[in-house]
């Protein structure tokens, strides 16, 4: 079981290995906090959809499984969407349309179909946790890189914490703005993937 968990983080890493779920990865990672929020939201959906699907895998008819998966996933996505809107409104505004779009994150449907549907709930839970964590880590790292280079601060939480000043004032005033603009997202993911490939080949 712990094998499933670790595989979820590294071997089946959604973004770096499978290159799935790229849209939110690039769109919301302008800050570490946003990346973390998005990652956790997706993890929540992943865990619960995995659990439910695996628990009921014997009743779900084979030929109707895809629409049923979609409804289950969409239900949890809506739950997350409204919960964020109610309790962390600012984050919800920042993530915007990408919260409801978790539903089309191929990774989640992929895990439902490829893993949860033929494993017991224990394994499905572990898989959900692992994949979710792997996804969250990448989003957090991307957010961190982009926030630090783009704004000179780290972990700013709007309305609560103004962030660690990583570099001096001079850097903050003339930071690499490109990094928090859309092209910066592409650049960061390209370099992360490149570094990951470098280590994997060895």
């Amino acid at each position: 079981m712990s094998r499933t968990f670790i595989d979820g983080i590294i071997k089946n890493n959604l973004i770096l290995v499978l290159a799935i779920g790229l849209c939110p990865t690039l769109a919301v990672t302008t800050s570490a906090y946003n990346g973390l929020g998005m990652g956790l939201a997706a993890t929540f959906v992943l865990i619960f959809s995995n659990l439910i699907i695996s628990a009921f895998r014997n009743i779900i008819p084979d030929n109707l499984r895809i629409p049923i998966f979609i409804v289950i996933i969409a239900t949890f996505v809506t739950v997350v969407d409204y919960t964020l809107k109610a309790y962390v409104p600012f984050l919800s505004v920042q993530l915007g349309v990408f919260v409801p779009l978790i539903v089309v994150n191929c990774g989640i449907l992929g895990r439902a179909e490829g893993f949860a549907y033929d494993h017991s709930p224990g394994y499905a839970l572990m898989d959900g946790l692992g994949i979710g964590l792997g996804f969250t880590i990448i989003l957090f790292v991307m957010g961190t890189i982009r926030e630090i280079l783009g704004q000179g601060i780290w972990l700013k939480i709007p309305g609560m914490f103004s962030g660690f000043k990583v570099f001096g004032e001079a850097f903050t005033n003339s930071s690499v703005i490109l990094m928090i603009l859309p092209p910066g997202g592409f650049l960061t993911i390209a370099l992360l993937m490149g570094i990951f490939n470098l280590f994997r080949r060895k």
């Binding site: 009743i59 008819p61 109707l64 409804v71 289950i72 239900t75 809506t78 739950v79």
Partner: peptide, 20 residues
């Protein structure tokens, strides 16, 4: 059985969501 499962999914999901 298929109809039943679909029916159940169709009931539970909106019910849960309306609660949320």
């Amino acid at each position: 059985r298929q109809v039943l499962v679909l029916f159940l999914v169709g009931i539970i999901s909106p019910f849960l969501l309306s609660f949320v």
